[in-house]
Write a protein that binds this DNA or RNA. Structure first.
Lengths: 134, 134
DNA sequence: CTGGATCCGAGACGATACTG
DNA sequence: CAGTATCGTCTCGGATCCAG
């Protein structure tokens, strides 16, 4: 967002190079951040500190295990901060880091796009499958 | 991008609801579109019609098989158009659909973010692992 | 309440060999 | 050139049970 988006081809060139780097860390990072559950968790956690069970109910479809795994990975990558309150019963809150907050707008755009084109995608898929069947 | 992003909380509410829908198609769509290789292919194909081998060289790290699978999935979802020229040797070109082009800016922002924070993420990861080791 | 531990099936992924 | 087919490996992800 720091650069003007008037000419896109330059950036595409840069990105191609970035993807070319051996060990492809760019693709790896994207895989973590843009994963199915990661996006859901990141978006849900953007409203402020969220608790484990709160996330579990909000995301609906995620299993306990995958929520745990996703949270650990995001914490490891420095996108979430995990705060434990040593009370009874225990209470744990997850908060986005600044780095993650800088990503929030993009994630929002991504989910918005997905919502808007959900129907088109389903239609395209049906068309493709029909053409493949005969 | 169409709406102003001054007040984010409203959209977060919408998205939470979207994620709650049973069968969670939103997460599924995102999983296809935002997958590790999908992003790479989509970004690479944004420069215009691209050929199979061109993609294979550009992305570097992707296997023949995964490139094929990714291309098929993106075509099935209506994000890519596959054009076959019945020449010898055969020539196949992949082009983004309008729907995919509308996603391009977001994908660019995503990869830009990943590039910018690649170091931070590696550092956070090292810190986390060090804390976990002892 | 917030997880960890384990098992297990399904799909992701890579390597290799073959084809129109 | 642009794939397909097959195989073996690895990870994802759900189910279940256990624990601080």
């Amino acid at each position: 967002m720091s650069r003007s988006h008037t000419d896109v081809s330059d950036q595409v060139g840069d990105l191609s190079e970035a993807f070319e780097k051996e060990a492809c860390p760019l693709a790896e990072v994207l895989d973590h951040v843009a994963g199915k559950w990661s996006i859901a968790v990141l978006v849900a956690a953007a409203r402020g500190p969220v608790r484990f069970t709160e996330l579990e109910r909000t995301i609906e479809g995620i299993s306990r295990r995958m929520l745990t795994v996703t949270l650990r990975r995001l914490e490891r990558d420095g996108l979430l901060v995990r705060t434990v309150y040593p009370t009874v019963p225990p209470k744990v809150e997850y908060t986005l880091t600044d780095m993650a907050r800088r990503l929030h707008g993009t994630l929002l755009a991504l989910t918005e796009w997905a919502q808007r084109h959900r129907g088109d995608i389903a239609a395209a898929r049906a068309r493709y499958d029909a053409a493949n069947a005969r």
